[in-house]
Write a protein that binds this DNA or RNA. Sequence first.
DNA 1: CGGGTTTGACCGGCGC
DNA 2: GCGCCGGTCAAACCCG
Length: 331
Amino acid sequence: MSSEPRDLFYRSQFYDDDDDHQQQQHGLGSSSVSQDHQFDPPQMGTFIDCLNGGFMDYNSLEKAFGMSPATSSEVFSSIEGNQKVIIGEGDHHNLGSENMVTQNSSISSSSTEAGAEEDSCKSTKKDGQLKGSDDGGDGENSKKISNKGKKKGEKREKEPRFAFMTKSEVDHLEDGYRWRKYGQKAVKNSPYPRSYYRCTTQKCGVKKRVERSFQDPSIVITTYEGQHNHPLPTTLRGNAAAVAAAGMFQPSMLMSSQMSNFNPQEWFGTYLPSINNNNQQGSSTTTTGAGSHVVFPQNMNSIDQQYQQQLHDYGLLQDMIVPSMFPKREP
DNA sequence: CGGGTTTGACCGGCGC
DNA sequence: GCGCCGGTCAAACCCG
């Protein structure tokens, strides 16, 4: 595992949202937050739930972001400062490489429900896989059998993913879970390789891919796939758990599973300044603390007209953007 | 020694 | 059918 970005862990004390269930404005009503200020989304619980095992569940996402069930969607945000983050969700996996045109098939397919299973293809192969590929031993004759347990003609369901972009020097951002790297591949048309990680927890089939945007090498694109069927490991060093979503959230947020009524509208409305008078990219900036800024587009139009370009600049395909992801800002 | 990383090979889907 | 390419495997290696 690579080193985690320090600044993500070294944060000053911050609300522990225990008492803040009512999604008040937390005194941050004025959209833009100062760099030194911790940003404090009212009820991130749902979103955290998404990360913490549920993020593959559309319902969760819908709840979390108020998105329409009819659309897969994505959140795009960027941060100015140490970290730039773009979060998103969808079933694309060609983040960061525009030529890596959709090959949706070979992704893991664990049915989204249980989240426990390894993807069907591997589970047939060897269940101890997560424990360490080397203890399997049966290596040679089955070297690459991999019928992957997939029936012919039976297409694996496309599993939605959750991706976000982070401006960071380190590739592998700590997100509170423990990951084991199981592969690395060169990405076509990109000088930066893509790394493949799997959650080390037994029976947890969550995977993630990490790659750098070839357009902007300072941006790390992390794509999660699957859902954790276990709580965050408790033995993480530092406040690793805090950095879920690439430093967007504070430890307290992550842990606040009780914060179940996060209202995205409210959150976005509160923390996202009007894009109209914001930067030229049509985004809103807020601070996540530790000098990180999150920039969210404010509404559909902004995404369509302004963020598409930015996404494109970042190497994201335009069709990743789903407008409904971003609720209109409440007055 | 256990757990994680590296790395080359293999597999399967997809486009031509 | 073939080649390309993303994804995965697993032996070898590394490290604390």
